[in-house]
Computed example of a mutant assay.
Amino acid sequence: MPLLVTAGRRAPLLLIPAVLLAAACAPGQADPRAAPAPSVTPSPLEQDGQEPVRGNAPDEPAGAGRTCPPEGVRLAPGPVDAALGARGMRVTLTNCGTEPYTVGGYPVFTVLGEDAALLDVEQERSATAAEPPAEVVLPPGGAAYTVLEWRNTVTDVTRPATLGAELSFLTSEDGATQSVFPDGGLDLGTTDLLTVTPWTAAEAE
């Protein structure tokens, strides 16, 4: 009862803090004591509704990125299959473009060492391949493969064994190339010989 009797004069003093507290806690209004949220400026691609293009990580092989190379194909090495000194590796070429892509015959590539120096490696065509090999037309999303085989045989102990680190493939008539990096490298011993099969259409997965 004393609060009701004396509230006539003290009510304004009691109501002002309550009104301020209600305003500070009202839904949809920011607390004036809180720090302002940092502003984030979207990139031009994000402003247009597109996803930004990101490059390959430093340890990723070339062509492994999310974008398709200008020539419309992407190369990828398979695992190296090793047994009793013999080695084998499949390299797959995928048409990641929007137009058909034709491959025919044998792949054209060079072998580079760890220092990117060109190695003198002989390329021998597989004796089991049909001659001449047929052309393969790859629709968008289609793929073809070639198989490389070699031996880790040392026949000359007077020189170090050859170790290839990179295969640079020709992927277009204008001279564009893509590189693949075999897992563990190409341990060619002292034979310096690679056996190569022609491009063969890969079965759809």
Rank of each mutant, 00 (worst) to 15 (best):
L13A: 12
P77M: 06
Q47F: 04
Q50C: 03
G8D: 07
L3V: 06
G65Q: 07
R9L: 08
A34P: 01
V53Q: 10
P12A: 01
T6Y: 11
A57M: 10
E60G: 09
P69Q: 02
G55W: 08
G55A: 09
A11H: 06
S43E: 06
L45Y: 07
G8C: 09
D59R: 10
V5D: 14
A22N: 04
T41S: 08
P12H: 09
P2D: 05
G55E: 12
A18P: 04
S43P: 11
A18S: 09
A30K: 13
V40Q: 13
P12I: 03
T67G: 00
T41W: 12
A34D: 04
L3D: 08
V53M: 13
A26F: 05
V5F: 15
L21Y: 06
G49S: 05
V5C: 13
L15M: 07
P70Q: 09
G8V: 15
T6V: 05
T41G: 01
D48G: 13
P52N: 03
T6R: 11
D31A: 01
G8L: 14
Q50A: 04
A18G: 09
T41A: 07
Q50L: 13
N56R: 15
P36V: 03
L3A: 02
L20P: 01
P58K: 07
P38K: 13
P12C: 02
V5G: 10
A57F: 06
L75V: 11
E46T: 11
A76C: 07
A37G: 07
A30L: 00
G8E: 05
P77T: 09
A30V: 01
L75D: 12
L4W: 05
A62W: 05
L20T: 01
R9Q: 09
P70M: 05
A23I: 13
E60P: 05
R9C: 00
R9Y: 11
T6S: 03
N56S: 15
L20H: 01
P38C: 02
A22E: 00
P61L: 03
G72V: 02
R10V: 13
P58A: 12
A76E: 13
N56W: 13
P52G: 04
E60I: 03
P70D: 11
L20A: 00
V5Q: 15
G78D: 04
I16D: 00
Q29A: 11
G8I: 10
L15Y: 00
P36L: 03
C25F: 04
P79R: 14
T6H: 08
Q29N: 02
A26Y: 10
S43D: 05
A24I: 11
L15P: 01
A7D: 12
A57E: 12
L14I: 08
A30G: 03
P77D: 14
P2K: 06
A34M: 01
G65I: 06
Q50H: 07
V19S: 06
P61S: 11
P77V: 11
G65L: 08
T67S: 11
G8Q: 06
D31I: 02
